[in-house]
Design a binder for these strands. Structure first.
Lengths: 125, 125, 125, 125
DNA sequence: GTGGTCTAGACCACT
DNA sequence: GTGGTCTAGACCACG
């Protein structure tokens, strides 16, 4: 379910963070669902469990999962996540990227189409 | 014109890349305009010229500036920039961020307003 | 009467210790009063009796309850509790926390108000 | 400057966090001052640098230090620290401890004396 | 079996 | 030289 590219230069733990976050955002992993144990995922991806754990700890800090010692890691319920600062940061990032796209000749229409595609399933959740 | 924050955790050379790129995108620095020499910028920002050099090499690689040996570094003309891969990457990044914003409860309208703000000056350039 | 939050990261047995200790301190559970059996509390909180057992052993070690084999667990009388080391430890903890509060800008007045609130019912007990 | 007790049961990295935090709170380490590198402190305390780093990362999360890659770790300026949630948590902890002290027979006067001792140097900073 | 901590040792990126 | 990442392997606490 998660693809790791060790040659990409992106830290492995970060790829795992992005991968799991993506599964949560796409609603493949749902609230209170158990995610693989550090050892299990380590075996599957042939990655050291410590690296997985670093990823899981980061996900916990960001509010996407919670840990129950002795039982495993679970997806947080969205409603419990604190937003605020996080949203502001994301918006700043989005603005920077869209400004660059604009500079490179992508016009408003194309960007709006992108947005529409992302929000297309809005009713369906 | 460029603000460096050593405490941010972002590598200094990368902050310089982003800073200059931003000036180019915002059209403060125009095509074929000369940008400061590595030594000059190093003095101004009290940063090691090697770090500036690294940033300039990265900007050149990304197609934002070109170097004339013995004369200095200059802003590329937009038309000369290769798009393709770069645009695709940026779009991927944008999609990921907007998906996350959507997950965090930001609705379509708010994102569209953002886009409109960025593209507001489109005619005027 | 005791709230367990498995997501908090605090071991469950420790939450039970704190919960019961709190009921004793707040005088909800009084000296020589019987507390629920490990099985009974386990059923109520849907927690493994072994975990409750561990909590009770810890409470007994700390002097808050005593066990009569075959009869159950009972709240100790305050006068029977050994102080000394325990009090010293608690004071050390309190000092550390208040020093940190001071560093974070909380002034003496605010801390004193806190104390007053806690000791407000002193006469009435 | 920091005493580590490997037999205490308290994780080493946590003892380091507490130790450094204490030096900062007591103003022994001042704003923007460099703290020992992970390797240096590791050598001094004969502890693995990875463990030191874990402690430093935690201190960074808590806002007590900041890291400049390639240069080292530095004490944050107090004014830059965000408070809010942290203060509330500390107050909750303080209340619990003082309630327990009260139960164990420590009277209001003794606790107030403690506060006065902690705040005695207030003018001197 | 689960996560949490720790060590030893290695390699890389940043300045 | 500094921090950042990663591995391999070990031991402990929790439930």
């Amino acid at each position: 379910m998660i693809n790791i590219d060790v040659k990409s230069g992106v830290p492995i733990y970060e790829q795992i963070v992005e991968g799991i976050k993506n599964l949560i955002i796409k609603n493949v992993l749902k609230g209170d669902e158990k995610i693989p144990s550090v050892r299990e995922l380590g075996r599957k991806l042939t990655i050291n469990p410590n690296t997985i754990q670093k990823a899981y700890r980061e996900l916990e800090y960001q509010g996407y999962i919670y840990t129950v010692i002795g039982r495993g890691n679970f997806v947080s319920n969205q409603s419990e996540k604190p937003n605020g600062k996080k949203v502001t940061e994301l918006i700043d990032q989005a603005v920077k990227i869209i400004e660059e796209l604009r500079y490179l000749g992508i016009d408003k229409r194309e960007v709006e189409d992108l947005i529409s595609e992302i929000y297309v399933n809005e009713a369906g959740e």
